[in-house]
């Protein structure tokens, strides 16, 4: 439970951070809240020679509103999101998701930028930001770029983030009257999703679902959009029979994983149940 030795650097500016990343990109890890990185280092699953602590870079730890979007800095903690009055009003899916993450201690330290950059296949943020069609802001040696969440995650702990790049913010739309919910099944000891489902539904005046977005985590090597379910439900009046019928399609062509918390058969069943429940919860909320 003792990490290997490493050089530690805590720059005060983003440009210094990117410079350090460029210099050490083969052997550097970015430290944000440390809630994923430090356990990995203590178990020696990760042994970086250089640690770049971005915690002292100003301007990355606030939540603000910009036209019809919310900008969330990479260093914003899960607790900040959980407690944000602005988010509760403008994008309640985010505070609701934050309350389900691990425990109070982890939520106080862990950050949304760190969680997204880590790309854990059971992370709670990836499905939520995917259901919201959020965009991720990345800084690197060639300046800044924005990436759509749907294009960001590539696989197990893998994303489009280059070794000399750092996640700096998230752009999330104001969800307004849309109905949202995040629901997950998780063992009590870890809180890691066996399956987690985030959903955003837009209804028109006649009660027809005009648009639905579903993000699912914990089920395969990365979070994914349940596109087939979305297609089956958009433009339709949602009743429980249709919802259950569509939910049963949420794992089609998905390679469902098997681990200590459930076989792939059980996880598949649980995913169908939780997709249906998440949609019902959003409609009821």
């Amino acid at each position: 439970m003792i990490p290997g030795s490493f050089e530690y650097y805590a720059p005060r500016s983003l440009s210094d951070a990117v410079k350090y990343l460029t210099e050490h990109k083969d052997d550097v890890k970015i430290l944000s809240g440390g809630q994923s990185l430090l356990p990995l280092m203590k178990m020696r699953l990760s042994k970086p020679g250089y640690i770049l602590d971005i915690g002292r870079i100003p301007g990355l730890d606030s939540i603000s509103e910009e036209s019809n979007n919310l900008i969330i800095g990479a260093l914003v903690t899960h607790t900040q999101i959980e407690d944000s009055e602005l988010l509760k009003k403008k994008c309640p899916l985010l505070p609701q998701t934050a309350t389900t993450i691990a425990d109070v201690q982890v939520r106080n330290r862990g950050t949304i930028g760190g969680s997204i950059a880590h790309a854990d296949p059971a992370g709670d943020w990836p499905p939520a930001v995917m259901a919201l069609d959020a965009e991720i802001k990345i800084a690197g040696p060639n300046g800044e770029r924005w990436v759509k969440c749907d294009d960001f995650f590539l696989g197990l702990l893998m994303s489009v983030l280059e070794p000399d790049e750092v996640v700096t913010a998230l752009r999330v739309p104001v969800t307004g009257k849309d109905k949202t919910a995040y629901l997950k099944a998780a063992p009590r000891s870890s809180g890691f999703a066996v399956v987690g489902v985030a959903v955003r539904i837009a209804m028109d005046a006649s009660g027809v679902c005009s648009r639905i977005a579903l993000g699912i985590t914990g089920v395969t090597d990365k979070a994914y959009r349940a596109e087939r379910v979305e297609q089956m439900l958009s433009g339709r009046k949602l009743d429980s029979k249709l919802i259950e019928h569509a939910a049963a399609e949420s794992t089609r062509n998905v390679d469902v994983i098997e681990d200590i918390n459930g076989s792939s058969e059980y996880r598949t069943h649980l995913t169908h149940v939780y997709v249906a429940r998440a949609i019902q919860a959003a409609l009821a909320g």
Binding site: P187, R188, S189, S190, F192, I260
Partner: peptide, 8 residues
Amino acid sequence: YLDYGKCS
């Protein structure tokens, strides 16, 4: 202890 379901 992340994997071991003790009662807290």
